[in-house]
Simulated scan of single mutants.
Amino acid sequence: MYITITAQKLGGDYSQSSVDFVAYLEKENQGLEQDDVEHFFNQYGDEIKAKEVVKEIDGNTAKLKKKEPKFYSITINPSQSELRNLQYNSEDLKRYTRALMTDYAKSFNREINGKPITVDNIKYFAKIEHQRKFKGTDRQVRENQPFATKILQLKQAIRKIEQGQLEGDTKQMKSDILKLEADAPHQQNGKRIVQGMKKEGNQSHIHIIVSRKDTSNSVSLSPGSKYKASEVMMNGKLVKRGFDRDAFFTKAEGTFDKTFGYKRNYVESYKSKKDFVKNPKLYFTTLLGLPASEKAVAFKMLSKSGVPMASIPTSQVQLALKTIRYLKRGVEVAIKSSSIGI
């Protein structure tokens, strides 16, 4: 599970409307039959139209300044392993989203009218998408890049030869291009993986747009608050503030596992990410101490994420700091992937 929370991003000043973001979330519906369309939904409603989402989010921004975000985006990216555990893909993801947003509300260290925040105080709309495209930062695209560069150079040379600006054997160059295409390490359906190519397999994920203000349009709720959980005196009153992201990520993972009976491996857990960041030696020691069957699954997950498995120590003695430093870069990339991170 990989979950991100980001503030509305639109340059210097924040846009006064969510219309562009909502339109972006509608991209997969273009050209689909009505029965195949994925609608927006929230805690209690389904089949919510895009224009209603824009109206609700844009109309809930009282007293927010131009340089303050009007909404936040939460993206939930289940791994392939997690998705395989679902019976009814879209309906199960809707059910999980509603449970997740209950966890989201509980992660605020705030009160409204003397009562803890609940999901009824949160104005949000969610959308399920089923496609993903390879990005330039994806490992497959990066590792194919040297081949892409040589192919581009050859194509440019061929064009110059055909225009009479250069001399050379275009037939041989075209043959070289075909060989480079085939030799690129990462292929999908017989084609070299490039930026913008659709990823195969189940790529279902969830986008959530959540208003910065509560449902009454009177209280500002920021999941990006730098205050984890604290109290401060404001106008002579002791006020709670903050959003506990750590608690939210932990709850999100636990809710998925409980809801769908998912048996989570150590390397795909939120705890493993924290162990890796704070104490790499503990991370690798725990990994090596897993039961044989769990360790085999863990190594398989790491291998798919691009970690150099041949270099992972096989005993506690080999677990030297030098080895950890060498592996750290590979695991850092893997732990950010949707297969093993939150």
Rank of each mutant, 00 (worst) to 15 (best):
Y2H: 15
Y2L: 03
Y2E: 00
K9N: 07
Y14A: 06
S15W: 10
Q16L: 13
V19I: 12
D20A: 13
K27E: 07
N29G: 10
G31N: 04
E33I: 11
D36E: 11
E38T: 10
H39T: 07
H39A: 12
H39E: 10
F40M: 03
K49I: 03
E52P: 00
V53E: 06
V54W: 00
K55A: 09
K55E: 10
E56A: 12
D58G: 08
G59Q: 02
N60E: 09
K65S: 08
F71G: 06
T75I: 15
I76R: 07
N77L: 01
P78K: 10
S81K: 07
R84N: 15
E91Y: 04
K94A: 09
A99N: 13
L100C: 09
A105Q: 04
N113P: 01
I117D: 15
V119F: 01
V119D: 08
A126Y: 10
I128M: 09
H130Y: 02
K133C: 05
T137Y: 14
R139L: 14
V141W: 09
N144R: 06
N144Y: 00
L152E: 15
Q153H: 02
G168D: 03
D169H: 07
T170W: 05
Q172T: 09
M173G: 01
M173F: 09
D176A: 06
I177V: 13
E181A: 00
E181K: 08
D183R: 03
A184H: 00
H186A: 03
Q188K: 01
Q188R: 01
G190D: 01
R192E: 12
Q195S: 11
G196A: 02
M197C: 01
K198T: 03
K198A: 05
K199Y: 04
K199C: 05
E200W: 09
N202W: 05
Q203Y: 13
H205N: 11
I206Y: 08
I208G: 06
I209T: 06
S216D: 14
S216N: 11
S218E: 14
A229H: 09
A229P: 03
A229E: 13
S230L: 14
S230W: 12
S230P: 00
M233G: 07
M234T: 12
K240P: 01
R241W: 09
F243A: 11
D244F: 14
K251G: 02
A252M: 04
E253Q: 15
T259C: 07
F260V: 04
G261V: 13
K263I: 12
E268A: 13
S269C: 01
S272N: 04
K274N: 00
D275Q: 05
K281F: 06
Y283M: 06
Y283P: 11
F284E: 00
L290Q: 10
P291T: 04
S293N: 12
A298M: 09
K300H: 10
K304N: 10
G306R: 11
G306V: 11
P308A: 12
I312R: 09
S315T: 15
Q318N: 14
Q318W: 09
L319C: 14
L319T: 00
A320V: 13
L321T: 07
I324S: 03
V331N: 10
E332D: 11
E332G: 11
A334I: 09
K336D: 14
